[in-house]
Design a protein around this nucleic acid. Structure first.
Lengths: 330, 330
DNA sequence: TAATAAAATAACAACGTTGTTATTTATATG
DNA sequence: CATATAAATAACAACGTTGTTATTTTATTA
């Protein structure tokens, strides 16, 4: 059985194919009665519109391309899922490429996607090919040809520090990747430092060797051998925090009675960790929502809006509590 | 500047647009001289062919859709990257959807992809929508409307056992997810059991609670408290093995002097683990190659080939060695 | 009830390609 | 050198839509 076209429907319904087209697009120019009849016939015949033809005349695809060159990072996987879900309630659908940016752009240009979302790692300018573009995750100075959506990492960690402070903690360690050129990591550290200074706390920052779980795992030894043993730890990412969590369990340190733990990254996985983790960061669903809205807005109103730093949220779970009595400062 | 079409080129080059079309498709029907001229003009004008138009008449897109509903699994991420790479040397390109199968199929049907690859988790039949389809990873009985590519998990683990046996090991533990309905896991266990029986070894299978790294980490305690302490461990997956590795390091058990470790999954990450891991499984690049070839072949010759179980390979690294002297059985 | 306005439908030209058929131009043949 | 043949190019109809313009049908008015 060949593909059925509007002309087939027209013949079957005894109308002209232009009327069919209008009916299928719910145009007010066709009488309700005929519209219903045509719709029914189309349904019966199993009509599927031909995107290529539509595209050829309308020059719109209602498809967004997402470029994700580094699929190995779990946090981003969650974001992708959320973005995909966010598109469901719009008239757009999403396709994905894991190729390097330039290549992916080429593919998407061929497909004539209406817009692209790029998960960018470096701060390098992305060559904009006059397809509306929105980037995620390249902080740094933005020269403003395309919007950049980013979480406010600094503020997130600050929030974490203040939250712990309010619970009575005075010795709070930060475990993450220090001494790096990765601006994302650096922003977090700055948040930690600023908040500590503001609250008059001594800083205990412990560097890891990488961003994997065992990097966090190993760092716990360093934390515990600090001159003044901290009562709370802030983990710089989901992976690092799960390593920390594992190590603490291992050493029989109870959470949150003896040690509070709070993690960067606000993703659902935090709730299903060994001990459900309190965390800070922009919730992924919110992030996804924002990215989707921005690209759609940019497509539909050609709005060259500027970078957006999203406000992080703190989600309280079982891994944090008030400071243990024996450590309470007078 | 508007999009340049073959008609624009035709005007510029003083030929008819049909000649331009032929020239651009390198048809033997146009004289070498004019062909060159046209190509030059096209280049100069920055011509980009319009896929929609081409597609409308040719009914081919030379694009393959990959459906990957469960992006959270790292091993699959590596496979995706490899598949994408494998397509580079063909005339096809690949797009990805992370939507549920039915939804993704719909999107791809709209795009009129020439074929789809599905990463299937369950053994449920995938509704084939007369777009050529190749599935990856649903073992089980295949009723044969589409090819299923799968690694021979059972044979892989058997290979691991035999390899360890040849190194002198007589007490080999298997750490993985037991007692499950997940047929992939079960195949591995069967491999372990069959090989053990064949070689007359006592079985030491330790079940984990899940497939995460800490599941492997935790299982090590069970391994070490077995009546007869094993001299080698087979980890059921990359994640599990990295947990095992971590735990062994932690406990100061040297690898491979005191304990050999071999992992299922043959991915590049194995080489960059704390201790480079010996592993078994079909190498991802090979798997990717096979998947790509199969779908292309199916598209181009409508070959309804049957399921393919790929032969696993053992890659030797630093985590395995001969059995320690004190454990040697006479 | 004819004239007129409004509503519904039909006709048709785009959109940018490919592939088939028709025409022109160059080359070989007797 | 006229003629048959081959090579090169041009013309044009698809492909399946949308949107604009032309036509028909129906409703409204004097």
């Amino acid at each position: 059985m060949m593909h059925v076209t509007i002309k087939d429907i027209a013949k079957e319904a005894n109308v002209s194919y232009s009327t069919v087209s209008k009916a299928l697009n719910n145009s007010p120019l066709v009488k309700e009665g005929t519209k219903q009849k045509i719709l029914r016939v189309a349904e019966n015949m199993g009509y599927e519109p031909n995107l290529a033809a539509k595209q050829l005349v309308r020059k719109k695809t209602e498809v967004i391309g997402l470029i994700w060159p580094t699929i190995e990072r779990v946090v981003l996987a969650t974001l992708v899922t959320n973005i995909s879900k966010a598109f469901e309630s719009s008239r757009y659908s999403m396709i994905l490429s894991v190729d390097p940016i330039e290549m992916a752009m080429d593919t998407f240009k061929k497909f004539q996607v209406d817009g692209t979302i790029v998960f960018a790692e470096s701060e390098n300018r992305i060559p904009e090919d006059n397809i509306p573009l929105v980037a995620y995750g390249v902080s740094g100075k933005n020269e403003g040809t395309y919007p950049i959506i980013d979480a406010n990492h600094e503020q997130a960690i600050q929030k974490a520090v203040h939250y712990l402070y309010d619970l009575g903690h005075r010795d709070i360690a930060y475990v993450g990747l220090l001494h790096t050129t990765d601006s994302l990591q650096n922003e977090k550290i700055e948040g930690y430092q600023k908040a500590s200074r503001k609250l008059g706390l001594t800083e205990h920052s412990i560097t890891t060797n990488g961003l994997d779980w065992f990097d966090g795992y190993l760092a716990v030894n360093d934390v515990l051998s600090l001159a003044k043993r901290p009562t709370a730890i802030i983990g710089g990412s989901y992976d690092i925090s799960s390593g920390i969590l594992r190590a603490l369990h291992e050493k029989g340190i109870s959470i949150p009675e003896e040690m509070s733990l709070i993690s960067y990254d606000n993703i659902p996985q935090m709730a299903t960790a060994e001990t459900p983790l309190t965390c800070v960061g922009v919730p992924v669903d919110q992030l996804a929502e924002e990215i989707v809205n921005t690209i759609i807005q940019r497509i539909e109103s050609d709005d060259t809006n500027v970078a957006k730093k999203l406000k992080p949220t703190l989600t309280e779970r079982e891994s944090t509590g008030t400071v243990p009595p024996q450590h309470r400062s007078n």
